[in-house]
């Protein structure tokens, strides 16, 4: 940063300094992912009724989020990149919700 004189801050408005994630962080994330893989397999053999898929998906979402934040460095990125990632998943959820409302309402009351 400091090698440029950039008083109006046009070059790097967010001061997004480049961050190198350490191997220790990666090791912790790796361990967490393996532990939660074990948990999700174990949970599959316990009868939780309708919560079996819910628990499995919640664990999958948690694992995905820590992969995105740490392995994919989103935690250390600029707001632009964070917004881009968030907007993508949000749009996906909107599409799923709208398509589901369509399918569910077609046979309304007939099930």
């Amino acid at each position: 940063m400091s090698e440029y004189h950039d008083a109006a801050n046009v070059v790097n408005p967010e001061h997004a300094d480049h961050h190198i994630v350490t191997p220790l962080t990666y090791c912790i994330v790796f361990g967490t992912l393996l532990v939660f893989t074990g948990i999700t397999v174990g949970a599959a053999f316990i009868d939780l009724g309708i919560f079996n898929p819910v628990v499995a998906l919640a664990i999958a979402c948690f694992k995905a989020v820590i992969v995105i934040l740490f392995f994919m460095h989103v935690k250390y990125q600029s707001k632009l990149v964070k917004m881009t990632v968030g907007a993508g998943f949000f749009t996906f959820l909107v599409l799923v919700t709208m398509t589901l409302t369509d399918y569910m309402s077609r046979a309304w009351g007939l099930w």
């Binding site: 949970a43 599959a44 316990i46 009868d47 009724g49 919560f51 499995a56 998906l57």
Partner: peptide, 11 residues
Amino acid sequence: PLLYLINRHPG
């Protein structure tokens, strides 16, 4: 989880 796990106990 979706393909392998969630159907072991259909509930």
